[in-house]
């Protein structure tokens, strides 16, 4: 009974009430993932589980036996940031930075979703492969709130990396 976070294995908690977010922060000691609302409304706790982004506050750690979790700490380091981490710095995609780990985890998974051809509510023709317009980026990132309002720069950072990737 264990889950894997950024390549390291952790035993599942004894108390089933432990959210995945609390487990990541307290048991694994990885405090990059943030607790904003704790109700799945803000996206600050977004992590990637088995390749899909989720709100880690709205799921229990015990429900993730055998799962692979990637947090912001697993995406890059100060010396070797991921393309999105670098782009968020280059474009000032934050002010206070509290939402940033969730934004970057979310955007990382979102670029994979685009590559997989998944539609969104902003996609005109849902039978066709989507094009990553700014409208698409905004819709697909609507689960990550930024109280500082750095949205234009967040979109710019994602647009740059998406452009390089395609």
């Amino acid at each position: 009974m264990a889950l894997n976070i950024n390549g390291n294995s952790f035993d599942l908690p004894n108390d089933p009430r432990t959210s995945l977010l609390d487990f990541i922060r307290r048991e694994a000691g990885l405090t990059g993932s943030k607790k904003g609302c704790d109700h799945g409304q803000c996206g600050a706790c977004t992590v990637i589980v088995n390749g899909e982004r989720i709100n880690s506050c709205l799921t229990l750690a015990v429900m993730h036996d055998g799962c692979s979790v990637t947090t912001i700490e697993g995406l890059g380091t100060l010396a070797e940031p991921s393309a999105l981490q670098k782009a968020f710095v280059d474009h000032d995609g934050y002010q206070c930075g509290y939402c940033t780990p969730g934004q970057i985890c979310s955007a990382t998974a979102m670029l994979d979703e685009i590559k997989a051809g998944m539609p969104s509510d902003a996609t005109d023709d849902i039978t066709a492969a989507p094009t990553l317009t700014d409208e698409e980026i905004r819709e697909r990132m609507s689960g990550n709130l930024c109280r500082c309002g750095a949205y234009p720069n967040i979109v710019a950072a994602i647009r740059e990396v998406a452009g390089e990737a395609t």
């Binding site: 709205l58 979310s106 039978t127």
Partner: peptide, 29 residues
């Protein structure tokens, strides 16, 4: 469901309704 080829092609109202709800993080769960 929303990403399934047959849903997108043959039951687009279902894909559109799902995509109009919540966020990607929530829809994944």
């Amino acid at each position: 469901i929303a990403n399934h080829a047959k849903v997108r092609a043959d039951y687009p109202v279902l894909a559109k309704a799902i995509l109009a709800g919540a966020t990607q993080q929530l829809r994944n769960k």
